[in-house]
Each structure stands twice: as C-alpha cells, then as structure tokens.
Write a protein that binds this DNA or RNA. Structure first.
Lengths: 238, 238
DNA sequence: GGACGTCATTCATCCAATCATTTAATGATT
DNA sequence: AATCATTAAATGATTGGATGAATGACGTCC
C-alpha cells in the first residue's frame, strides 16, 4: 500500500537491521565501500549516504583507511524511532520492558508539568485527542483508536512545554504502538481505559498536578496488566 | 588541538546551526541542491550526505519536485547531541531549564534502578569514575574533573541496564557539560559535591534504592543552586 | 462548469568514473 | 631499538550524466 521504498531507505533499513541483529561484532569493520555497495546492489554514493544516516544515529563510525566500524550498542541512539523499530523485530520483550520502565518514570512527571503549565492550546490538543478516542471507540471496528491514543500521549508530553520531554515521548511512540494495539484488541480494555484518559484531561484542566500524575500512573499500570495477560507473553516465572 | 573538521562535518554543522537559528521557516524549502551546494562551496554529493544526516535527526524532509523542507521543531530529535549543541548557542537559558527538569525526573529514578539491579561490572565503572573525580579534584588545576563527572553520570544511568535510559543520559550530557564547568569553576563546589557522589556509590553498592534516589536528588539540587548563583544568570524576578 | 486524464517541467535520485586526502602498515636509517 | 620516510589502502570529495517521481498546466469528456 505505502509507496515503494526508495533505494536510500532500503539500504538504511537493511544495514540498520543487520547491525541490530548482530551481523557484525561491535568494533568489527564492515566490508569496504566498493564491495559492500556491489554486494547490496547499489552505487557507492547511495551506500555512503545510507552510512551517513547510520552515523547520525550513533551506530557507525567511519574513518579513512580504517574503514566503517560498528559502534558498541551503548553508543547507539536507542531513542531514535528507526533504531527502536529495528530492535522491535529482535528482542521485543526486552524492549517492551525498557519502554514500560521509561513510561513509569517519565509520564507521571510529564503529566504533573502539564497540569502546572498547560496553556489553552495544549489543553485543546489534549481534549481533541480524547474526543477522537471516544468517537473511534464508539465506531464499530475501532478504526483510528490507536492513532488517537498516540496523539493523546503526544499531546500530554508536549503540554509541559519541555521540548526534551516532547522528543522523548515521540521517540517511544513507535514502541508504544505495539502495546496500544494489544490493548485495543483486548475486549473491554478500550472502554475501561477511556475514564482514565478523561481523568487526566480533567486534572490538567483543573491545574491539579498530583491528580494528573496519579491518573497517568493508574493508566500505565492498567496497560501493563493488559500486556502481561496478552497471549504470547511468558508468565513471569523468574 | 582538534584536527580540521572534514567537509561533511562542516556542512552538517553549518546547515544544522542555520536551521536551529531559524534561517528558514518551518515548512519553507531550502534552495535547490545545485544552488545551495555552490553557495556553500561544496559538491552536490557532499551536500546530499549532509542533508541525509539532518534527515536522520528529524530536522529535514526531502522529496522530489518539492525540494528539501525544514520540519517543525516539534519533530526534531531534541535529544540528539548535535541538535542540543546547536541549540546551546541560541536560547541557552531555555535549554538549561529543560535539561534541569529532565534531570530531576530521570536521574533519581535511574539511581533507584541502579541500586536494584547493578551488576559488579556496573558498580566498578561507577567506582572508577568516582576515583577519577577524586584524583582530579586533588590535582591542582582540576584537569579532567568535568570528564570524570560526566563519566560518573553515564555509569549511573547505564547501571540500571535500561538502554533507553542510557541513551537519554548520553543525550543530555552535552547540555550537562556546561553546568559541570560552572560547578568546577565555583570555589569549594568540587569539594562539596564529592561526598554526594560517594553517597550515591555507597547506596548502589548496598542495593538501597531509596538512599540512591535521595542522594542523587540532593546532588541535583545543589548543582542547580550553583548554577543559579553563577554570574550571567538573571535572578528569578518572574 | 466540474471531474478526469495527459503531458511537460522541475526537481531529487541514483549511477559511474575520477582525483584528492587521510592513515596504517611497511621499510629504511640512524 | 627507536625514529623517520615511503607506500598502499581505504575513505573523502568532485564532476557529469541518466533516471524517476511529484507537481502544475492543459485539454478533453461528461
């Protein structure tokens, strides 16, 4: 459906996925540009542009004569949407754990800031997202519910006016989408989550930071329980 | 001294700084590749590679016929080290405020996780960083103290084992460096901060999450007061 | 008059070939 | 054995051209 991926995107995806999958050890050099380009089937220029994209994400380091080497995973920008997507296909469970932890840390605090400082524009974006969620929930098939949920999430983190928090929210959205899909597919979960979202909007509108934080926390915990009960999740026997 | 910057780095810095400084309105198109390349004084290939780097940071969007357009700031990856550096030269006060807020949210929670889950390797990295801070503090001139402080900060956020938190910490390090420099230049601040750092290491080694969190919080608040008292900071009259 | 298809234009896209620069590995010199 | 010049191998950068995609204008059909 989506248009054909351009060559550049194809090469970036190919290399990024290979790196995440551990095709090359950290510190190990990739094949030289000429051979790697012919192996992939693109020109050297296209390969170099793709490599530059991965350098910008902190995954590669390239130097004359030495070649292109994979940087250790600690150096990767794990908050980059592409990196998150590549990691999703691999160790999805670990990513879900990390994402959930980050949510518990950041979102209640972000809700607190939003309740303290949200201006009318931010409040309206929040209410619009909530309305979209409600209409999508009423609509049979729930088309658009996940998108509305993400928009709500985004509006909440933007409402505090802290751009770093905004970027952080946008980063984890890719990882969040998966959990939202699970919640939407679980019967009754959508109806159960709507009151929680309404409570958040109420708290932000009333400029009640404590209420906003607790409402978000309750929502996150409910979502985590949905995920834990979803099929394909190993019960925590450790 | 650092070597001469390569053409690629030069162009990325030039364009990134220009975008952050608002040389082009969000949504406005940049000059076409040919003219922009000749204007900067590089070839199309070098310009294209630089543009790809900025696309990877979420600042540009390029399409045939439409051209290269600046994306709205909400879409930028504000957690990218380069983006933070470019923003630093402009509205440094706002960035300092956002960074400080993020620290207060993330670092106590990260310290809590570190105390819960730090393995011996992480603990050793933490202690090594502390030792480096102590030796740098004893050394006249304090050379290397800022670097050691950043290494400590990094080790703490890595110790929790959450890669997203690790990337988050690495992201704000660039912004943090400034405040560390201020603290180091303030007489007596270095000696005052060392016990706080030792308390963090003790709490992590003792697997005491609450103590770790409070120790970090105390350190952050002390640093904020140092910044507030530093010259060039407008007193909070609002 | 409005909707739909066609076409030309304008860019980015991708490729191929070439030269310059950096740098490690090697060899020569003392 | 340590230092310095040489060399070769890889990236860095440039040029020119061919291709493809998106847009706006134009014309046709209902």
């Amino acid at each position: 459906m989506g248009h054909f991926p351009t060559t550049h995107q194809r090469v970036v995806d190919l290399l990024g996925q290979r790196i995440v999958d551990g095709a090359w050890e950290p510190g190990a050099p990739l094949p030289v540009e000429d051979t790697l380009a012919t192996e992939i089937g693109v020109s050297r220029g296209a390969l170099r542009e793709a490599v530059k994209s991965l350098v910008a994400k902190g995954m590669l380091h390239v130097r004359p004569r030495t070649g292109t080497r994979v940087l250790p995973p600690e150096h990767w920008n794990h908050l980059d949407p592409d990196v998150l997507r590549w990691k999703q296909t691999g160790d999805a469970a670990a990513l879900l754990r990390d994402t959930s932890e980050l949510r518990r840390i950041v979102e209640p605090a972000a809700a607190r800031l939003a309740a303290e400082r949200a201006d009318p524009g931010h409040v309206r974006a929040l209410r619009d997202a909530l309305t979209a969620m409600e209409t999508a929930a009423a609509h049979p098939g729930r088309s658009g519910y996940v998108e509305a949920d993400i928009a709500f999430h985004r509006a909440l983190l933007d409402a505090g006016g802290n751009r770093l928090l905004g970027s952080l929210g946008r980063a984890v959205e890719i990882a969040l989408e998966h959990s939202f899909v699970i919640s939407t597919q679980t019967p009754g979960a959508v109806e159960a989550s709507l009151p929680g979202h309404r409570a958040i909007v109420r708290a932000v509108e009333a400029h009640d930071p404590a209420a906003a934080a607790t409402a978000v926390q309750a929502l996150i915990e409910a979502a985590e329980q949905e995920i834990a009960r979803s099929p394909g999740m190993p019960s925590d026997t450790a």
